[in-house]
Design a protein around this nucleic acid. Structure first.
Lengths: 219, 219
DNA sequence: TAAGTATTTTCAGCTTGCTGTCAGGATAGC
DNA sequence: GCTATCCTGACAGCAAGCTGAAAATACTTA
């Protein structure tokens, strides 16, 4: 899915950019309304993530202009907590959803996923892997009918593997996926979680590549 | 199906009118409570689409008057209002469903269709869930014959789960369902209501997904 | 309006179970 | 065998969630 991210905070913008890219979306990240207009003029997007307070104007105005011109691209608004009335204005102006900062990346993923599904017409995406069924939407994993309970971290790890099927992933890459930027991990946490995941999913799925990282078998 | 649409915004009214007419319903569109009363006095409707903020009064009052006079016509509330209690008042006053503006027309169609089916084929639609019977019309839950009394909030929460059976719902999503946009909840209200619902319905129905939200078992 | 009742919201203490770390053992490669 | 790397059981600390109860609010009835 093709996303336009309009967010002037470098820090937050980068995080969202990375996350969305990780999830397989094509992200164009711009930081001003001017740039956004240029991007929108030249490209067709499936979803716009819209910050409201921007250096060269207010996001609502962009949204209004967009809707006025007959553009019905899905829009999710990102607003600060103290701008409640903005949310209402945003929804009135034709936004599809909103998120209040600070938000969990997982929450953002869920909303974006919901929009993606709405557009793809696929209500409940699942991945089948060996005898496992992974419900990406509900964070549910089942094997032979039985449900496997995963903790948040275990799920995040599985997700990392599923996003790049069959690829070799270094511990650093996995850490980057599990821990939002800046987190310092000084122990063998990844090893521990790989171990826990294997125990729950079945050992043969995740293979160790000594000195390099891990790889999940695709079939 | 014969609909009464009470909506004072010309723009929105026209859109809904057209859409519903397209879908084969007979639509009477009025713009004030006065006109609505006149229409209701002379005609039998299957469904009322009710805006709340109206030039000559509040939609809730009409709904209350209607129910007080023993009229059980289905009502779907259309509200852009951000007042916390509107939704609750609406449901308490006997609304069947609600939609927060702006909404997708497809969403509206779906709700209207649901009401249509509810009234056409099935005079008393119920969902069976474990040993529970949930009567969607009357907002009643029974178990082994005994009736379980739910308060407005408790019902709203149950409803959120029933509308998306088996899906993982975050606390934020549940808040959005219980509290119209704009309400800020700063405590563990959702946890409290989950706790109360569990106590009334039976603990095993709602499962906690730590760090992510809750999920209601479907069977 | 005021009193009485019901519901909602908040708070605080408690429980649960996840997380990150470590240590000691296992394994692979040389 | 030796070493680097990886695996995994155990555990303390912590954060998320649960729940009883009080405070605040809404609703009802006289």
């Amino acid at each position: 899915m093709r996303l336009l991210l309009l967010e002037d905070t470098i820090e937050l913008g980068e995080v969202i950019d990375n996350q969305m890219t990780d999830e397989g979306h094509a992200v164009d990240w711009v930081q001003t309304i001017g740039q956004a207009k240029a991007a929108l003029a030249s490209t067709e997007y499936d979803l716009i993530l819209l910050d409201l307070m921007l250096p060269d104007g207010h996001g609502i105005d962009l949204l209004k202009a967009l809707r006025h011109s007959g553009d019905s691209t899905a829009v999710i608004i990102l607003t600060a907590k103290d701008q409640i009335s903005d949310r209402i204005k945003g929804l009135n102006a034709g936004a599809d959803d909103y998120l209040v900062k600070p938000f969990d990346l997982s929450e953002l993923s869920a909303r974006v996923g919901a929009v993606a599904r709405r557009y793809a017409g696929n209500p409940n995406p699942t991945i089948k892997l060996a005898d496992l069924t992974v419900d990406l939407n509900n964070h549910q994993v089942t094997r032979a009918g039985g449900e496997i309970q995963l903790t948040a971290r275990e799920w995040a790890l599985l997700e990392a593997f599923l996003q790049r099927p069959g690829m070799l992933l270094s511990k650093v890459q996995l850490e980057d996926h599990l821990y939002a930027f800046g987190a310092e991990i000084e122990s063998n946490t990844i090893e521990v979680y790989v171990s826990r995941l294997r125990k729950k999913l079945g050992k043969e799925l995740i293979e160790t590549v000594r000195g390099l990282g891990y790889r999940m078998k695709t079939s």
